[in-house]
Each structure stands twice: as C-alpha cells, then as structure tokens.
Write a protein that binds this DNA or RNA. Sequence first.
DNA 1: GGGCCCGCAGGG
DNA 2: CCCTGCGGGCCC
Length: 332
Amino acid sequence: MVSYAEERSANIERNKLILKEIGMEKLKPATEPKEKRKKKKTPRNKNANNKRKMTNFEVPGGRDPQAVEQPPTKTARVDSEVSEVPGESRRRSSRIASLPAGAVVHAERRRGTPLPMSVKTIVPSASGAAKRQRRYDPKTYGAIPGIEVGSWWASREECSNDSIHAPWVGGISPGPHGAYSVALSGGYDDDVDAGYAFTYTGAGGRDLKGTKAAPKNLRTAEQSYDQSFDHNHNKALKRSVETGKPVRVIRGFKLRSPYGPSEGYRYDGLYTVERHWQEKGLNKGGFLVCKFAFKRLPGQPDIPVRGGEDEEPEFPSGDEESDAEGVDTSDD
DNA sequence: GGGCCCGCAGGG
DNA sequence: CCCTGCGGGCCC
C-alpha cells in the first residue's frame, strides 16, 4: 500500500500540474517581496485597539492599482494612530502567536467574559447593515472599500468584522453567484499554494458531531465521507467557475507555504476560480473531496513571501521541480 | 504538544 | 429553530 507521504506527493504533483495548466506562470513576478516583519518601531502604545489592521507590504515602485478595482485607500476604522504592531519576530507555528503586546484583545470578546451579548447590540448602526459594526456588507463580490490588498488581522473574527471574510471558522463564504471569499489555512495537506494560484479543497465530508455515544460538537474533523458539489459551499465555488466572479482570498498563519503569513491573516486580493473537480483526498478512507483551482487577478500588489530574516524558506517557493518538499514532516 | 469545548456568522 | 464550519482559548 502507499504511504501517506507518497500519496500526498502524488496529489500535490497532480495539483501542481493543474496550476500550470491554468497559466499562473505569467503572474508570478521575477522577484518577490519578502514579508515585512512587523518590527517594533513604535514603542508600545499599550492602548488596546491598535491591533486593527495594517498593510503588510508597501509595494516597491508604485504599481498601478488599476486592473482590479482598487478600493479607495481609506484607512478609516483605525481611529487610533496606526501604530506599528510591535509583534516583533514571533515564530509562526504557535497559534495566533503574538497579539502584539499592546494588542489586548477586547475584553468583551474574550471567551469567558460575561457580556458578549451586549456587544452585539451596541452600535445600532443606523443603516441596519449587520449586527456587528461592519462598514460594508461581506456579501459582496470583489474588493471591500477601504481594505487594501495586504491588510493584516490577528484573527478570523477581525477579518469578519472588516467584511473581508465573514465566517469565523468556515473557509468558504458562499453566495448565489459564487463564493465571496475563502480562507487558506492549511486545513488540507495536499493543497498546493503557489501564491498566484493555488488549489483549494471544498467543505463537508466530516463528522462534526461525533458519534451518538460520544457527541463531539467539533468545528473541524477528519474526513469521514465523500464531499460533494451539492454542499452549498462547494456549489458556490463551482458557480464561481461558471460566473467568473472574483473571490477574496485570505491566507492564514497555519498555511504551510512560503506565501502564508507568519502570523494572523492577510488579505491577498482577488482570484478567480478556474476549475473544479473531484478527487480522492488525502484521508484515511480515501474519501472524495471537491477541489478548486484559483488564479490571481493581475494588477494587484505582489504577495510577500515568508523568510524575512529569522525564518528560512522551507520550500523553494514555487513549484518547478517536483521537489519532495512537503513530503517530509519537516516539523513545524 | 493534544484534547476539550465553546461563541459566532450564515444558511436551511 | 436547527446545523455547519481550514477558530481559538484553556486546561492538561
């Protein structure tokens, strides 16, 4: 029988081929910007709230943000001076590693704290927009005004608040004419992330409730049955292929790829879903999974790659050879 | 590190 | 109301 590693490489190779087929080569810049470590420029500012968002890379030489409806740079919401997050060098791998020192999580949102309910009701937000104080409807195709490509958040909750990706947990935010957004967090071991294109695994096929005897109430779990395009989320991504609607993409720190941020979540702009198919997933049982191939729209700022200084690129950033990269368990 | 258990946004 | 989901705090 085939080992997990072998099966994984095989899947990865197949997925890489698909990415080549959809023509992502041209999108990848000759030289890729390094992820900017969030240095601790500003002293501290321990006033909570500065954990808002920040753009992670300033593009060398002004590119023209034309091609893709670039939202008006409107840094609202950061009411306080956008102090640099003193996140310094944290090694990825820990959870949401460092909410930078001063970035205290709002007490109301903490888990054990008592008044989460009242938080929602605060800020009626006249326009009856949403319960949260969202400025824009996340159920929008394309860019969210005011959120630049490269913006960064410490948690999924914050991404949701800024309407970039509404679900707190789910990777896919479905809509009638396609998905609005997806989150790459490395949930599936055989997905390939080449930055300017990537493969993505659909939702479903998991038993989140556990067994009758041992109920689990989980949020994620191993595959235990086939995924299908009947699942609303997968159906939405399939629609994206048909309609060509752009999908917002965020990458999370758990993503094992040079393009994954070392901490938190980063908005990497708009992509189109080029293909959808089903294949045997990397799971015990060989259950089918729904797969999708995404390609980035041109004209957006380059994606920063990890490996600023104290981090060594674990993969040769691209695909190229069939480098046996991930096959190992290169710890981490 | 792993296991638990949970809040929440969204859709049905 | 019910169920789902590439989180995440907490405890061990």
